[in-house]
Structure formats: structure tokens, C-alpha cells
Write a protein that binds this DNA or RNA. Structure first.
Lengths: 199, 199
DNA sequence: TGCCACATGGCAAACCGTGCCATTTGACTG
DNA sequence: CAGTCAAATGGCACGGTTTGCCATGTGGCA
């Protein structure tokens, strides 16, 4: 295993290559659209061989999605570390906080990324897959805390929806309120689900 | 436009070809796994030219997913026709009923299909895309009924989760109860979200 | 310095999907 | 019934992604 805590010259170069690929892909995708950019173009822009792309990333889509692994792990840890409030809701709130902490300093990049994804069905599909994995993770965490599996699945699904909605509202609003306010808003909306709307 | 209500000899042959492709793909995918089956193999098994596959379906994945279009339209109609109960919940119940009505007589095929999808990440991604489209549809329907857009998005997400859970429970249980019982069960579980679990 | 492991790059091949063109076959008219 | 037209099909070649294999170079370490 390559130890990430041992910044060899080798490791440094490796990361530089990775970063170059991600940056090149990001720029090209944003400018010309995902489908219009060939992997050959990415390779040239990143100044690496075409074959090297596939040594760092599983496929073309991964140029955009691989960086999310860190996020996934952070949310996993946060979910596992959340206090046991009996309802399981704390799991989601903690995960959202952890996610926001990582996403906050990258808002600008995330907006570009979201733009690319929004214009490309194949990428939306991949995004959904990522969310499904996350939801499975929450389901397992809830089961581990004693929820019956079927209920865990349902709670995880609804929790994911609320968490996603919270992050969406937080990211899309230019001058957003604090994350806590947004979470409270989502909770409030979710609490009124069965009641008639009074616009 | 080809009128589906005019079963020409041409139209009949066309449908026969379509069905042959779907059946051939289904069998091959189920036996060897999606990735291990080439489109050439499907073409040979269906006794059509490889080029013809792409005149009936957008891509390899569509051999499995195109049949869902009917389901999508039925759910759309049912959602639009649902009575306005003020909360929007009727929209989901009606859509689930319509879906169940179509899926019921195909349970056996659906199980095989689910097996194939479960073993293939690419197909899971596509499945997610389909659900996202459905969710967007619910969101629009709720907005049309006067819900504020943000709340509509959240309600649609949660409703989709519950509807999906209901259909999942209904399909996976060999000797399932009535659909109404299952829907009631999901509603009950959803209603206890904020309360601690008492296993 | 010299050896070894690892990262890279090039090449060829398999597979998916599409544009183009020729051929077949059903539909419709007089 | 024959002739014409449109639709469906099939073959071919090409561009694009992804993988296996092998050769080359570069850093790590004794």
C-alpha cells in the first residue's frame, strides 16, 4: 500500500499528475461539454500519455468523481461517530455537517462541476450511484444501531433526501444562511409533510 | 408518427423484432451477466443484424429499460389524476397503485431483471436516472398543485422514497399482503421517524 | 554506484455506438 | 394486378473508450 503520509518524491509527482488530470478535465469539460471532450484531449492538456489516465482513474467519469472519495469517507466517519439519539436522525445531521465542512472551501469548483454534471445524463447517473452507495452506508449504520432492516432502509432513504436537500439549499443560495438554519428549515418542512399546504 | 392502434403487418413484424431482442437480451444477460454479453451476441440470438438493434433501442442498456416507458407514462397519468388532498400524498399513493397494476402480471420477469441489475453497477446507475426523472415529475405535479418549489422538491423526494420502499416490499415478499396493507405499513414507519426505536 | 520496484508511454485489440448506402419488403394507388 | 414509394433492415467503416502487454525511464534504497 502507498502510504499517503509518506510524501516521497514519487508520491509527490503522482499527486501532481493526478491533480493535473483533474484540472485539465475540469476545464475542458466545463468549456466544451463532457461528451465533446475526448480522453485524448484530456491527456494532451494534462501532458500525460493517454494510457496514464487509466492508471489514476477507473474511467473518464472518474476524472470528476474520484475526488469525492474523501467526502464519502468523511461522511462515513461522521455517521459512525454520531451520538445515539434513539431516532437515528443525529446520524444524518452529523454527516451533513462533515460534508459541508469539506465542501465549503471548494464552493467555486463545485459550482462548475455541478454545471457539467447537469448537462450530462451519464454523469447524473453516476451521481445517483454515489448517492445510492451513501444511502446503503446509512442503512448499515442504522441497522448497526438496532433499527429493523426494513425501517432502516426507509429511514436512510428519507434521511438521504433531507440531507441532500439541505446541502442543495446550502450550495445553491449565493448568500446562504448558516447550515444550522438550513437544516432546521428542512426539518420543519419535513415535519409538515402530512399537513395541507397553506401558501 | 406510427399509430400503435393500427396493427399493420409492418407494425406486427416490428413489435416481433423488438420482443425478440428484449427476450434474447434478457436471457443472455441473466445467464452470463450484462458485461459478459456483447451486442453482437444479442443480435445473433435475436436473429437480427447488429445494426438493427440500434434502430429499436438507444443503447445496450435500453434492451432492459425501454419497456419501462409504459410504466413511467402510467404513473404520470395516475399522479396527474389523483385527487387534491391538500397534502399531496394522494399523488404518490395513486402512482404506486398504477405501477403495481402494471407490474403485478410480470412479477417473474421483474425478478430476473432485478437480478441482472443488482449485479451490474452501470445498470443501477441507469435505474437511478429513471427514478430521478420520476421524482422530477412528482415535483412538477406538486408545484402545479400550489406547493412552493423547495418544499415540493423535498416532498417529492420523500414521497419517492416511500413509494419505492412500498413497491420494493411488495415485490420482494413471496407471499405479500395486499398493496394497501403495505402502503399503510410504510406510512406507519414514516410517521415514527422522529420517535426512538423500541425493538 | 548499482539494483529493484514502480510509474509511465506506446501499441494493438475488443467493444459500443453511428453515419452512410444498398437491399428487401410491406403499403398504397390506379 | 402491376408499379411506385416509404419504411425496415443489414453490412461496412469509423471514432471513441477501455484494457492487456511490453518496453522504457525514474526514484528509492543498500
Amino acid at each position: 500500500m502507498t502510504d499517503p503520509a509518506a510524501p516521497n518524491l514519487r508520491e509527490i509527482k503522482k499527486r501532481r499528475t493526478r491533480a493535473a488530470i483533474v484540472a485539465a478535465a475540469m476545464n475542458l469539460f466545463d468549456e466544451h461539454g463532457y461528451d465533446a471532450v475526448t480522453v485524448a484531449a484530456v491527456a494532451e492538456a494534462a501532458e500525460v500519455g493517454q494510457r496514464t489516465l487509466y492508471r489514476h482513474f477507473a474511467d473518464k467519469e472518474d476524472f470528476l468523481f474520484a475526488p469525492d472519495d474523501e467526502l464519502h469517507h468523511a461522511m462515513t466517519r461522521a455517521a459512525a461517530a454520531a451520538p445515539d439519539d434513539g431516532t437515528g436522525l443525529a446520524v444524518f445531521v452529523h454527516a451533513v455537517r462533515a460534508a459541508a465542512e469539506i465542501l465549503e472551501p471548494q464552493r467555486e469548483m463545485l459550482v462548475r462541476r455541478a454545471r457539467v454534471i447537469a448537462r450530462t445524463p451519464a454523469l447524473q447517473a453516476r451521481e445517483g450511484l454515489k448517492q445510492a452507495a451513501l444511502q446503503q452506508l446509512f442503512t448499515d449504520e442504522l441497522v448497526r444501531r438496532g433499527h429493523p432492516p426494513e425501517r432502516a432502509r426507509l429511514v436512510a432513504g428519507i434521511g438521504m433526501t433531507c440531507a441532500g436537500e439541505a446541502l442543495a439549499r446550502w450550495l445553491e443560495d449565493p448568500d446562504h444562511g448558516s447550515l444550522d438554519e438550513i437544516i432546521a428549515g428542512v426539518e420543519a418542512d419535513a415535519g409538515t409533510l402530512g399537513t395541507p399546504i397553506h401558501k
